[in-house]
Design a protein around this nucleic acid. Sequence first.
DNA 1: CATGAATGAGGCTTCATTCAT
DNA 2: GATGAATGAAGCCTCATTCAT
Lengths: 222, 222, 222, 222
Amino acid sequence: MKAILKNINIEVNKNLYLKDPNSSDLGKAIIYNSVLLIDEMGLEHFTFRKLAQSIKTTESTIYRYFENKHKLLTYLLSWYFKFIEHLVVISTSTIDDPIEKLSFCIKILSRIEEDNIQILNLELLQKIIIVESNKILHSKELSKDLSLDTFEAYNQLCNRVSDIIIMINKDYKYAKSLANILIEGIYNQKFNCKYNKLLADSMNKQDIEEFYFNLVINNIKT
Amino acid sequence: MKAILKNINIEVNKNLYLKDPNSSDLGKAIIYNSVLLIDEMGLEHFTFRKLAQSIKTTESTIYRYFENKHKLLTYLLSWYFKFIEHLVVISTSTIDDPIEKLSFCIKILSRIEEDNIQILNLELLQKIIIVESNKILHSKELSKDLSLDTFEAYNQLCNRVSDIIIMINKDYKYAKSLANILIEGIYNQKFNCKYNKLLADSMNKQDIEEFYFNLVINNIKT
Amino acid sequence: MKAILKNINIEVNKNLYLKDPNSSDLGKAIIYNSVLLIDEMGLEHFTFRKLAQSIKTTESTIYRYFENKHKLLTYLLSWYFKFIEHLVVISTSTIDDPIEKLSFCIKILSRIEEDNIQILNLELLQKIIIVESNKILHSKELSKDLSLDTFEAYNQLCNRVSDIIIMINKDYKYAKSLANILIEGIYNQKFNCKYNKLLADSMNKQDIEEFYFNLVINNIKT
Amino acid sequence: MKAILKNINIEVNKNLYLKDPNSSDLGKAIIYNSVLLIDEMGLEHFTFRKLAQSIKTTESTIYRYFENKHKLLTYLLSWYFKFIEHLVVISTSTIDDPIEKLSFCIKILSRIEEDNIQILNLELLQKIIIVESNKILHSKELSKDLSLDTFEAYNQLCNRVSDIIIMINKDYKYAKSLANILIEGIYNQKFNCKYNKLLADSMNKQDIEEFYFNLVINNIKT
DNA sequence: CATGAATGAGGCTTCATTCAT
DNA sequence: GATGAATGAAGCCTCATTCAT
């Protein structure tokens, strides 16, 4: 998988940044450290000032890259969903059997954070997304355009999964909803297994994958 | 159902408030309007100042009821989850068949917001919970005790549903996780059907209830 | 000494209180606890609200005794200086030899806090006075009248000591200043020995008494 | 003496400020005006808001220089004690006779406020210190580190004076305490002569200097 | 182009006091 | 006479952003 990751270059909507954070070390530091800080203190308490201090630069410098913290956040989320969608597409494109496709897709969703790519800490970003995603997808903060941008990335991901479901059973009516449940469910499950043990039955990665695989299969086979 | 609601009196942890908001009209206005405002502007932008303005009182007056906005929020969430749990318990207690219990329970979860009780707008509160719940359950703001309080209320609700699942199939291993998926799923689904139509297949209330009923049954019957 | 204390009844300027704190248990609790709280948190952070909480009453109740915190404070200080002056007068009135008078007077100043009388904790009150007295004696907070009241009490105490000095050497020109140095010095010394060990040479009570006795004698004998 | 002052550059602990107030006109105005305001209204009523108004800037600007009013205050005090210590050291370093050293040192302590250096009003700062020093040295507001910083500056000053006393009589046991009395005494005396005439015998500067010189000499000669 | 300084608005919270019962 | 509720002002501090160099 790592080999794949090396070659991926995610294109995020250019309206989200003023200067491409990938174009400089400082930009990369902004991305990397915002993930750390948002995880650490929550979105509400994350500010450009604190980010600036943590990477030993000034607020104004960060403003050269992102207009405000919500655009930065939208950038992160867009990037994340596009990244996973890309991964799902690439990884399953060579598989013919739709059931195997599904199985592999679930594996990716469930194990994605194990890969650490340089630009940011995937595991923390995923944690942020779990905690903040609903908020962001339905946010009143973002201009419709931007919020749509993140939404679109997430929606695309759902579509990919939904497509696989339909390949298995082309008559299934609720593929999109099921895809949505699957994605949110896996994330929540992983999160709960780690941070809210009481809320989840004890499962390891493989159990989770089987559980969700069965959840889908049992429903669409009917 | 309304008859039942009239008789319910939810007890929330007394550490969450300084003065019981139910003990005065002002207190009730605080509760009622915070739900409106949080929905309107999001938790992050909700402040006691704005709340005070909207009910034509002063910040300090609100501080006589709640120590800070996070305690107010925790109050709302605790109240909500306790309220639903209560409803689930009462409504299903007279049903013997576990499958019918499940079916009725799903109905409650899916239709609860239709009842409007005086003190607050259930539908909006539910919307807030969908959007902000992850954020709140894992908040860094709250002392562990308080966050546990909300968590406990939610956990109890999951336990009730999980108990019903186990009544249907006492060997099923992942009842708690499934309960969790069911609750979160129903909420999300309703939300998406209303606000994010793209993310969900078109379903009406009854479709949702059937869908989730099948989701559970198909899995635990195996 | 305790026998003496029992019979002392200090009269404080009646303008300082609205209702005599000695006239009720609540009043006594106000006095007793304000000393504890001011010591604990400093005058600046001491408020009627906190005092009310600590004695489980309400702010308005305290307002029935004292118009504001500065009058309460002035009450405490006035009381304290009058109390010591009284003690000095009574204790030395039966001594004829002025040098012995001085010696005994120093002993009182240096050991006064050892006696605990019911109404308040003398040791803590003294600590407060050391930390806050300059501030209060020269305060811009108090109406001139009230500040004068405390000042007058302190001044009277200085006069008593100064009188003794003059008895020893009636030609000594700076008796008042020396009395002032003596009183402030003893207090500071005790305080430093306890809380700022670096600032003072290690001395026990007896050393301090001897030191100050010599300080006075060596100067006025010249 | 003025010639000396011009060349003195006092180094204050860098943790006390965020931005060196000496590095800008605004910074200097902050220092200068805080002294005026604290004197005018007392430390308790001195706020950054009022300071900002008096120098026609905003609170946030002041926060760029000092984290809070207590750090600003600590800065002033540290600066002051370091300044005087410096002065004592420099001025007495060329004198060989310890008695003359003492005499000169007392002169400095008693006349220091006559010099007005640009950055602040020494006389007022000294007044503040007299009124607020005990309060500050034993403040509960400051972290131990910072309060130690001021304390250390004062302690160093005492050490310098104490050293001179020991030069005069190397067997004298209470040099530190005597130094402490001397410094506090001179300050108090000056203050009383000016603002509390009743508390002090009428003395001019020269009288004060003689009085304290004798106070020391008479005690240590024994 | 990059950076440090500045700033107005607003966040959260407590204060001191008054009012009504 | 005692108490609980209410409130406007202010305290302390941070935010998001703009300006000037």
